[in-house]
């Protein structure tokens, strides 16, 4: 280990993050040119920094002291029943559809008063019946009484 590595080692993270002053950067650059060990350490720090920047930030729940900012995505909150809000909206929609169907069915199920009326020639029906039943096994001459 070259002389002065102990003095430059604490500056390694600041060197990677570009936070050193101008004179500190000049001294650090002169040291790294002559110190393979420090150059290897700086390389490790750059890789670690890059990896840390690629991991998505996890939002800290408000209950745990998280701070909401404009750039912070709003988490999906649960409703009072404990169901996710999307599921609750779906159930509400289905209930509304069922209620709408019920109202439509009630309206459509009104008694039909507009159906056409037909004449009922019962006396002719009696004669038609006799024509087709006169041949019964116990055939009487007549089973007809148009009038009681």
């Amino acid at each position: 280990m070259a002389d002065g590595c102990d003095a430059f080692e604490p500056l390694g993270s600041a060197w990677v993050d570009g936070e050193l002053r101008h004179d500190e950067r000049a001294n650090m650059a002169a040291h790294l040119q002559g110190c393979p060990r420090c150059r290897s350490r700086i390389t490790g720090l750059r890789i670690t920094s890059t990896m840390l920047r690629s991991v998505p930030q996890r939002q800290v729940p408000m209950e745990l002291g998280g701070v909401r900012t404009d750039a912070t995505p709003v988490p999906v909150a649960a409703d009072a029943s404990g169901l996710p809000r999307a599921l609750a909206r779906s159930l509400a929609g289905m209930a509304a559809a069922v209620a709408l169907l019920g109202v439509a069915a009630f309206a459509a199920g009104a008694p039909d008063t507009d159906a056409r009326t037909v004449a009922v020639p019962v006396d002719v029906y009696v004669a038609d019946h006799i024509v087709h039943s006169i041949g019964g096994p116990v055939s009487t001459p007549a089973l007809l009484s148009a009038q009681p």
């Binding site: 009326t117 037909v118 004449a119 019962v122 029906y125 039943s133 019964g136 096994p137 148009a146 009038q147």
Partner: peptide
């Protein structure tokens, strides 16, 4: 085999005024 019945079915509501007398 002994008695006979005829069922007449008409599409429409009956006009009760057309029923034969005695109804």
């Amino acid at each position: 085999g002994l008695y006979t019945m005829s069922l007449f079915e008409q599409s429409g509501r009956p006009n009760w005024d057309t029923l034969p007398p005695g109804a």
